[in-house]
Structure formats: C-alpha cells, structure tokens
C-alpha cells in the first residue's frame, strides 16, 4: 500500500489514535494540529493521497482547509470529521468538495473502512 494520509486533528490523543489505527492498515500517516499546519504539510509533501480533517480546530477550521485546498487546485480527497452533525455543516462540507463526512462519536474501524473506500473510489476514477 504505502499511501500517504494526512490527519488534521487538534486533540492530541485522538490524533494519535487515528494515526495508529490507520497505520495498522499500512498507510503512511502525516499529522497536523490545525488547518495551518495541514496547509504547510500539504505544500511540502506532493504525494498525499487523502486528508482526514476535524472541523473544529484552532487557527483554521477543517472547512476553511477544504476551501483553501480547493482554491489551490489540489485534488486530494478529503474526509471530514465533526461532532456537529448539523445538516447545514454536512452540506457545506460536501459543497466545498469533501468526499465523505463522519460524525463524532465514530468508531475507528468505521473510519478505517471509509478511508479505504474513498481511496478505492478515487483510484477507480483516476484509472
């Protein structure tokens, strides 16, 4: 596999748990504490295959991150994590270009499954 996934989440323990869970599936994980850091990592690393981002983060929210990536013409698939399952937020995330939306609380295994599916979908469309 060896696909690169960027995990942007402000809560350190959760970030680490997501990292460890996804590493178990053989992905290479990069992490960021907030949207700013995520942008930095993305500009430095070319071959990121997927971004998993929380919505509520300091300095730059997940939704801002998604819209900035869109304006940068980055076509990296994004999975948005949020504790706000408000319809408006979900729709906004999809409108901005998110590929999937996971509501907290979530099961790490569910996240892993969705990551796998999104990567497969993107792989199929690019082929």
């Amino acid at each position: 596999m060896g696909m690169k996934i960027l995990v942007a989440e402000d809560e350190p323990l959760l970030r680490r748990l997501i990292q460890i869970r996804l590493e178990k599936d053989g992905y290479e994980i990069l992490t960021a504490k907030n949207g700013h850091e995520a942008i930095e990592v993305i500009t430095k690393t070319d071959d990121i295959d997927l971004i998993v981002t929380d919505i509520l983060m300091p300095f730059m929210t997940g939704l801002e991150l998604v819209s900035i990536l869109k304006s940068m013409n980055k076509t990296i698939p994004i999975i948005v994590l949020s504790s706000m399952s408000v319809e408006k937020t979900v729709l906004e995330a999809f409108r901005l270009g998110a590929n999937d939306f996971i509501t907290k609380p979530f099961s790490p295994n569910e996240l892993a499954a969705r990551v796998k599916r999104v990567l497969e979908e993107v792989g199929n469309t690019t082929k």
């Binding site: 809560e11 350190p12 959760l14 504790s83 907290k104 609380p105 099961s107």
Partner: peptide, 15 residues
C-alpha cells in the same frame, strides 16, 4: 481530560 475528549469522539467498543 484526554480520556473524556476521546470518549466523546469515539463510539462502540473503542469508547
């Protein structure tokens, strides 16, 4: 604090 934060975010067996 850390456990609570994770507890809120995770569901099922993990929680």
């Amino acid at each position: 604090d850390r456990l609570i934060e994770v507890y809120k975010s995770l569901s099922g067996l993990a929680a």
